Computed example of a mutant assay.
Amino acid sequence: MSHPTVTPGPAPNLVADTICRTAELGLSIDNAADAGNVTHLYCHPVTFDLNCPGCGYACRVRDHVERRLTDLPIVGHPSLLHVRVPRLACGNDDCPVTVFRASIPQAAEDRQSVTHRVTRWILQRMAIDGMSVKACARALG
Rank of each mutant, 00 (worst) to 15 (best):
A32Q: 12
A107S: 14
V114R: 14
I19R: 12
I122D: 03
V99L: 15
D110A: 15
V15I: 15
N13W: 15
S79Q: 15
P4L: 14
T119F: 07
S2L: 08
H44Q: 12
V133M: 10
R125N: 11
A16H: 08
E24C: 13
R21Y: 02
N92V: 03
R101K: 11
P73C: 04
T119Y: 03
P96R: 04
P78I: 08
A23F: 13
H82D: 01
I29S: 07
Y57E: 03
A135M: 05
N51E: 00
G91M: 01
Q112I: 06
I104L: 11
A139W: 10
I19V: 15
Y57G: 01
P4D: 05
N13T: 07
L69S: 05
C136T: 10
L80N: 07
T5F: 15
Q112Y: 09
D63V: 00
D94I: 01
L50G: 00
Q112T: 10
R60W: 02
A102I: 02
P86D: 04
A33P: 01
C59I: 03
Y57N: 03
L41D: 06
F100M: 01
A35I: 04
G130V: 10
R67K: 12
E66H: 09
L140Q: 10
D17C: 14
D94G: 09
L41G: 07
S79C: 15
T47H: 13
H40M: 12
G56F: 03
H82N: 07
A89K: 09
R111H: 14
R62H: 15
P96C: 01
Q106P: 01
